[in-house]
């Protein structure tokens, strides 16, 4: 280390002498030369965006949440009326919340479990693991509306490939997107193929676990399941927590999947909060009400994240701290 630093020290000693001019630089000149000035100059674009396109719109939507506003005429202050309607009489609020939690809960639980299982398997010296990693990661990147359209066709109850395969193994497939019971499970099933990112994060986490620990467990005669429970899961708990929180944040905002595949149907069985919000804002032009809904969604996400972190504080094991 020392040897590495010597050139710098020497260089610093040889730094140019004090400025030739005797008069002291003005305050403005000193600021211009200072590091702080440079820092804030570099940050100008980001700060403009943060204030103008993030904080100001957020504050404005907070204000709009207390108004009746169609997005065209000037907003009219109505106090807490939006929230009274939301929690009291709106027939869509609570059910759409329930559906969103159903979706998010199932997607995060199943997705994290599956990603962890796949990552654990791929972390062995299995021949062909690179190929499998590519296959599992691919749908996480190559996704979006075109793939939702493909899945819609695959879910087709009569001519779709999924029910054909189920039929092959002797199961009469459900109507999937056409059924009020199966539409949501169909969306959840599809989302499971997008867990490749979570899997990659788990793989990175698994590779960070010291080999000695696992070897020690093997020497102690622990079987693979015991090793997984007693060594891997505790050491991986920060990563599991991260994936759960990120998964919750994403899936509570679900919108495009139901919008493209079911339009919220059948009979509103996939009318999640994101759909509800979109319709209120851009279809019915209840922009004031939609702003209130957006704030509720934001606060729920924040509250849930805090809750998960609180709950995890006692259980998550951080190595070395």
């Amino acid at each position: 280390m020392n040897a590495l630093h010597t050139p710098t020290t020497r260089a610093r000693e040889a730094a140019p002498p004090a400025p030739r001019r005797a008069e002291r630089p003005s305050r403005w000149q000193r600021f211009r030369r200072s590091e702080s000035a440079a820092f804030y100059l570099f940050l100008v674009p980001w700060i403009v965006g943060l204030v103008g396109l993030t904080l100001a719109p957020m504050l404005f939507s907070l204000y709009a949440g207390f108004t009746r506003w169609d997005g065209v005429h000037s907003p009219e202050w109505i106090g807490l009326a939006n929230f009274r309607v939301m929690f009291g009489s709106d027939p869509d609020f609570w059910p759409s919340f329930g559906r969103t939690f159903y979706y998010a809960g199932a997607r995060v639980t199943l997705g994290v479990l599956m990603a962890l299982a796949l990552a654990a398997i791929l972390n062995t010296r299995l021949p062909g693991r690179t190929f499998f990693r590519t296959v599992f990661f691919l749908p996480a990147i190559v996704t979006g509306v075109p793939m939702f359209v493909v899945w819609s066709w695959m879910f087709d109850p009569s001519g779709g490939i999924l029910n054909y395969l189920l039929d092959k193994v002797g199961i009469a497939g459900p109507a999937w997107l056409g059924s009020t019971t199966w539409s949501m499970p169909a969306l959840i099933l599809m989302s499971l193929t997008a867990t490749g990112g979570t899997m990659i994060i788990f793989l990175a986490g698994l590779q960070g676990i010291p080999v000695e620990l696992r070897e020690a467990a093997i020497v102690d005669g622990a079987g693979w399941w015991h090793r997984f429970r007693a060594v891997t899961v505790p050491l991986l708990s920060p990563v599991i927590l991260f994936n759960v929180v990120m998964g919750l944040i994403t899936s509570l905002q679900v919108f495009a999947e139901p919008f493209v595949m079911t339009q919220g149907g059948p009979e509103r069985s996939t009318y999640v909060f994101g759909m509800y919000l979109y319709n209120e804002a851009f279809w019915y032009s209840n922009v004031g009400y939609a702003s209130a809904l957006a704030w509720v969604q934001f606060l729920v996400i924040v509250a849930l994240t805090v809750l998960v972190l609180r709950f995890a504080r006692r259980r998550v094991h951080y190595m070395g701290s």
Partner: peptide, 11 residues
């Protein structure tokens, strides 16, 4: 962590 809706409606 910000959900896009909260920004997009006023934007």
């Amino acid at each position: 962590m910000l959900p896009p809706f909260i920004i997009l409606i006023p934007s």
